[in-house]
Amino acid sequence: MLEARDISFRYGPRDPLVVQGFDLAIGPGEVVGLAGPSGRGKSTIGRLLARHLRPTAGAVTVNGAQPPARGFNPVQFLSQTPIFAANPRWTVGRIVGEAWTPDADTVHGLGVRPAWFDRFPHELSGGELQRITILRALAPGLRYLIADEITSMLDPLAQAEIWKALLGLVKQRAIGLLAISHDAHLLGRVADRVVTV
């Protein structure tokens, strides 16, 4: 169970709270949608859950304990813009390899072509690169995945393909998924339940 208990966040001591007393629980294999208008801190909540940011107050726990400070975080974050999530000087193969060496089934399941591994991030399209960041995050230690508007920059076909593949993989491996989006139709399709901020 991934839990956020009463988490709050502000950037600096004098800045306003971006997230205020937020609670959430996601079980293994569960797909939860996070909806709400822009400016309500949806992305910040996602980053707090995946420890890209530390909460000003409250705690994020996995199975009742805080994930260890070192080592692979069982909670990983995927963003809207995969190009920033890839070192521009690395090949795609090296980028994926930083997390794990994926098995052929996962590679195939996500529609990733082995030929992409020799290219650089800017040589792939947004949709192709997003598949790569998903593949990278699916390392064996992954238990929960935060997907922040991961397909909002993509065309509907790529969106449908990616979500079909991702949902298949998380269900099969009992990975909990938080889908952040302001597309209510999309959340209606992918989420078991939707939380609104």
Partner: peptide
């Protein structure tokens, strides 16, 4: 392929 339609690739 839109989610409000068939959401099929």
């Amino acid at each position: 392929a839109l989610p409000q339609h068939e959401f099929r690739a």
